[in-house]
Simulated assay, not measured.
Amino acid sequence: MKVEETTIPGVLRIALDVKPNDDGWFKENFHREKLAGLGMDVVQHNVAYFAEAGIVRGIHAEPWDKYMSPSSGRVFAAIVDLRDNETFGRVETFELGPEQALYVPRDVGNSFCTVTPHTTYNFLVNEHWSPERVAVDLFDPELGIEWPVQELSYTERDAANPSLARLREQRA
């Protein structure tokens, strides 16, 4: 596992060791000691499957740390700092396949778009799910996220998220 810092403090891009074999490949997606070294004590592992490309979820900032990696397919991840700090509103994007993971600290917004059909995405978290979250508009021009798929599918709830400017106003 090779860890690389990003421009958003605390967000880490992780290169995973994927070992090809005659049947496909093998990767160690979870190793308690290695994740503890990043400051994460996993309490829940979630898996989401998406049949089509262009499915978008987010931008959500939850009160838990996340470790995310696809086990099949590819995703485009857009990470937005929604913490009250000097990097509030900073965006960084990544395309992830099974050989990569992201570590996203609590209160940093995360979203993703499936780039390929039949994508399976794993989420490890260090707190059990709760409805508490901060969200921002997926298509806010201030964020300038260029989604990689033309036809997108997203929830009505995500479509109704406030702009970054509105979130800033609410916090002032």
Rank of each mutant, 00 (worst) to 15 (best):
A36C: 00
A36Y: 05
A36Q: 10
G37P: 01
G39C: 06
G39A: 07
M40S: 05
V43Q: 04
H45F: 06
N46H: 01
N46M: 03
Y49D: 11
F50Q: 05
F50A: 11
A51N: 09
E52R: 14
A53D: 01
I55L: 04
V56H: 05
R57T: 04
R57C: 07
R57H: 01
G58T: 06
G58C: 02
I59Q: 01
I59C: 04
E62Q: 15
P63E: 14
P63H: 11
W64S: 09
W64A: 13
D65E: 08
S69L: 10
S71H: 02
R74I: 07
V75N: 02
V75Y: 02
F76N: 12
F76R: 08
A77F: 03
A78P: 04
A78W: 09
A78H: 07
I79Q: 09
I79A: 02
V80R: 06
V80F: 02
V80L: 11
D81W: 03
L82S: 03
L82G: 07
D84Y: 07
D84T: 14
N85P: 04
T87H: 11
T87D: 09
T87S: 12
G89C: 07
E92L: 04
E92N: 13
F94Q: 08
G97H: 04
E99Y: 10
E99P: 04
L102A: 08
V104T: 08
P105D: 05
P105N: 10
P105Q: 06
D107L: 10
N110D: 12
C113D: 03
T114M: 09
T114S: 14
T116C: 07
H118D: 15
T119I: 05
T119S: 10
T120M: 10
Y121G: 01
L124V: 00
V125I: 14
N126A: 06
N126W: 11
E127A: 15
E127N: 12
W129M: 09
W129R: 06
E132Y: 03
E132C: 03
E132F: 00
R133H: 13
V134F: 08
V134I: 15
V134K: 15
A135H: 12
D140T: 03
P141M: 06
E142L: 12
E142R: 12
E142A: 15
E142N: 05
L143V: 01
E146V: 15
W147A: 01
P148D: 14
V149N: 11
V149T: 07
Q150K: 15
E151Y: 13
L152M: 04
L152P: 00
L152D: 00
E156I: 06
E156H: 13
E156K: 14
E156G: 15
